[in-house]
Amino acid sequence: MKSRFKLALAALVAGSAALGAAFAPGDAAAQGVSFKGKTVSIVVFSPPGAPPDLWFRQIGPYLSKHLPGNPEVRYINKGGGGSVVAANYTYNALKPDGTNVGSFNAPGAAESVRGKRKVQFDTSKMSFIGAQTITRIVGFRGDSGTTDLNSFVKATKKHLIGLQAADTPYYEAFYRIMGIDYQVFSAYPRFAQRLQAMRTGEINTTPFAHLTWVQNLSTYKKTDFHAVYQMGYMDGSGEIVPVTVGGMDKVPTGHSIVKKHKPKAVGSRDWKIMTSVAAGQGVAREVWAPPGTEAKYVAAWRKAFVATSNDAQYKADHQKAWGVPMSWIPGDVGEPIVKKYLDMNRPGAF
């Protein structure tokens, strides 16, 4: 009944042309878990239409294909509060019957250990399903005098950095170590406003999500923007490493710059602050199951996400949409990374 109605509505608004792909049948075999005839829900930590929302909406049909029983996927948008709203909702309002998972970002997860804000969730009681890696590529205007690593290290002109509030400690620590004159502007509400400020010269450097940078590479080159360094992310070994997609391997991480040019600062308080932010980039967009979810369901979700990330069609779709392949950190690999990241962000960690 439900899917029939969905079909009718879909036909009303968009014709039935695209339905084939969206509801394609998939592999239904799984050990003791089947979502056949059910609807599974994903709590999305952004309002509808924002990049995280679209990312989840794009992955939804593939998850349906790879979850046992091919359930319908629906999305519950709980934006705001630096993703704490979505995390609270996932923890408190979702039934742990295996059909529900929630998402939040790494800084949101870190709020749970800082204990400063009105946080009503505890990641230690939840099950980690996996995460998408998203790091920052830091772009500079040509007229800032900084266009590559060399000119960055020798910079004499003040760097006017446009930032989002959550990432600010990383850049401040990095600039303190490097001894470069800087000023932070953190009030731009969205990326679009920062981009306009970059275009008019109100700021001369700002970080871009690496997906955005790779996607718009040609335009940014023409606009005289230069990728100088990146935040990188923490791999399973605990090292901060660069993302390598789209030619980004040539863009060094802040950590590698410090190691090379200010080796004495390695291990300092500022270094630890940098690491505490960069460590979250590997598990930037996290998916969790609410507390009490049975292990077999967690396993089914983990498997479905991994299978999706290996799905040839999805890979192509992701590449087309976001300009880079999907980089998924599976639950078992990501769990220790998340734990390290959270430990680094506990009060008094540095």
Binding site: K2, K6, L9, R74, Y75
Partner: peptide
């Protein structure tokens, strides 16, 4: 029931 909840997947508060 059918347009908002089923059709548009709108999740009304509990």
């Amino acid at each position: 029931q059918f347009v908002f909840i089923e059709g548009m997947d709108i999740v009304f508060p509990e």
